[in-house]
């Protein structure tokens, strides 16, 4: 990863699922992730890291890959939650992980269903420190 990431990092969250409320809880005053200059943005062109979480079907996978193509270099992906790390909880044949691993580089895997907010901060900070 590039050295730009050390000073500022823009995150973009996609998908719908239970992990979303615990990821956005990080913005609150108790955890306050903006101490580390980490911001949540809404447009793919501004984003450095894509946070993939939640449930996806065939249509959803196509949209995630489109969003990843619109992001500018350097870029990466964090995978959050069991639904992304293994398979969808309610569907036996979901192919999201195979699609992701074949096309994009995944920087960090965060296990948990849903993971605690501290675990998410830990993952992002590890990316910042390793770059």
């Amino acid at each position: 990863m590039s050295a730009i990431f050390k000073s500022n990092l823009n995150l973009l969250v996609t998908g719908y699922g239970c992990c979303k409320q615990d990821i956005f809880a990080v913005q609150g005053a108790l955890y306050d992730i903006q101490r580390f200059c980490i911001n949540f943005v809404n447009t793919p062109e501004d984003a450095d890291l894509l946070v993939v979480q939640g449930f996806y079907n065939k249509e959803g996978i196509i949209r995630v890959l489109n969003i990843y193509e619109r992001m500018s270099n350097p870029r990466g992906v964090i995978a959050v939650g069991t639904c992304v790390l293994n398979k969808n909880l309610f569907s036996k044949n979901s192919k999201l992980l195979a699609w992701l691993r074949s096309t994009v580089k995944i920087y960090m895997y965060v296990p948990g269903c849903p993971p605690r907010p501290e675990a998410f901060i830990y993952a992002v900070l590890r990316i910042m420190n390793e770059s």
Binding site: L12, V13, T14, G15, Y16, K20, Q21, F24, F40, V41, N42, P44, I67
Partner: peptide, 9 residues
């Protein structure tokens, strides 16, 4: 759009 709130997504 990506990054929208929980409930409208």
């Amino acid at each position: 759009p990506p990054g929208i709130l929980d409930g409208l997504d």
